[in-house]
Every structure is written in C-alpha cells, then in structure tokens.
Amino acid sequence: MREELFASGRNIPNIDPYLNIWHWQIPIYLFLGGLAAGILFFAGVFTIMGKAHKMPATVKKAPMIVPFALIFGLFMLFLDLKHKLYFWQLYTTIRLESPMGWGAWVLMIITPISLLWCASYIKEFYPNWDWKFKFLNTFEAWVIKNRVIVAWPMTIYAVILGIYTGILLSAFNARPLWNTSILGPLFLVSGMSTGAAIIIMLSDDHKERKIMGRIDILLIVIELFFIVHLFMGFLAGSEAQIDAANLFLGGKFTAPFFTFVVLLGLIFPAVLEIFELKGFKVPIYVPAILVLIGGLIFRFLMVEAGQITRYLY
C-alpha cells in the first residue's frame, strides 16, 4: 500500500486536487481554429486546382464565416487570459519555442488573409457593396485577378493553424495525455472534417456536396485511424501515459468519448454519408451537425482529461 498526503497548506481548493487552469474557452477556441483551418484549406486547394467555379460553397460561401470564427475564437482565448490588460505582450515577442507564441502569430497572419479572401467575394453576395475609397476598389480588383497568389499562403497557413491547435496541447510534457506528437495531425484532420461538414451544410450544389461528402468520409476514416494510433502509442508508453489512456479505456471519460465522439461524431455520420452517396435520401444536416458536435466534444474531453493526467500526486 502506498499513500501520498499533503501535510501542509498544499491541500488548498485553489490548487488541489488538480490545477484546472483552462476552462470551456480553450476547447471552443481550438474547435473554431480547426474549423476555420478546414474551410480555408479547402477554399485554397480548390482555387489552386482551378476548380473554384465548380465549388461555390467551398470557395465563396463557407469562407465568409471564417473571419467571424477566428475573431470569436481569439476573443475566447482573451477571455481565458488571467492578466488580460497585458495581452499585447504576445505581439511584442517572437518566441519560436513556445507553441502559443507562434500560434498567436499564425492567427495574426491568417485572420487578415481570410478577411481579404472574403472581401474579394463580397460583391457576389452584395452586388451593391461600395468600398467608399477608390484605392480599395483597385486593391479588390488586384485580389480578384490574383486569387491563386492569395490561395497559396492561405492554404499553407491553414494547415499550420490546424496542426497548431493540436501542437498547443502536445507541447506540454507535464500532461501525459497531451504529450504525443500525433495530436497535431489528429486535430488537423478533425478540424478539416468539421470544415467539410460546414461546407456540406452550406452547399446547394449536388455535385459539390458529393465531392465534399467523399472527402469527409476519407477524413473520418483517417481520424479513426489516428485515434487508434493515439491509444496504441499510449499503451506502449510509460506508466503515466498508460494511466492517461485508461481515462478513455475504462475510466471516467470512456462513455462520453466513445458515445459522442467515436460513435455519434465519426462512425455514424460516416455511415450516413456513405448511404447518401449510394443514393439513399439522408437529410444532409444530420451527419454534418453530428460531425460538428463530435469535434467540439472531442476538444472538450481532451482539454479536460489532459489536465487531470500527471506524473506526480
């Protein structure tokens, strides 16, 4: 028998039993970041491939929500800061070692790019839109002419943003559940899948929905594969990591994880999408919304569970 006790003032409600410093804001921020990355990635890729006219929702409609998602996500991050008035310090330092540091810079770059992208399409939705200043009109004309030039950095930064949402967590070696490099690709694929779900919901074009549906099924399969990989890696790891994996394999996160993330968030929507492709009538909102909810719950569970896993105490 082995028992550890805190003999002193360490058993304080503010610090023990565990330091839960990140609350609901962070998973929402990670979710919106991943979603924005997914949408921008598809918009960029289809533009570079020269298929923009075939994918109206992917390239024009869905990116319209990205700046809102990014700014709202950043606002969530701001809400989570405890020393709010000093937030500008993020942008007076460049620290490549700190994922949060370079992530803040990536957001600083991709948010204006996404705004630029939306601005170049705004006249397709509001034909009477007036930029008021002449130089803005000239600038808009340049962007419309050179969308591919904008699409390249947008696609690359979208991938970095998607991976960043996972790396932000995986860089903490003190939290065994997060400390695995597969979290980067996993969050990227999950973010792309939620982005694809938004596009499917917004699209009126049957062919486009079919293409995005196929992509989404592929992404879901990759995500399931990564999740299996995640736990395989943990179970082959140190005791701290085995304990972390057991939170999801029999521990208190097992039921919500397998019900809402794996079953309702991945397998069930994939099956529905396969049925849809086979010609069955499936209301497209159902799998898309399930994927979105699954993605959100996945981030909530990872952030919450990661803060419980530890080496000591």
Binding site: I21, K84, Q307
Partner: peptide
C-alpha cells in the same frame, strides 16, 4: 498575460 501555458507545462 496569464495564459496558463506554464501551469500546464
């Protein structure tokens, strides 16, 4: 800025 990254780390 009170981001909590070091507390997690």
């Amino acid at each position: 800025i009170g981001c909590g990254a070091c507390i997690q780390a």
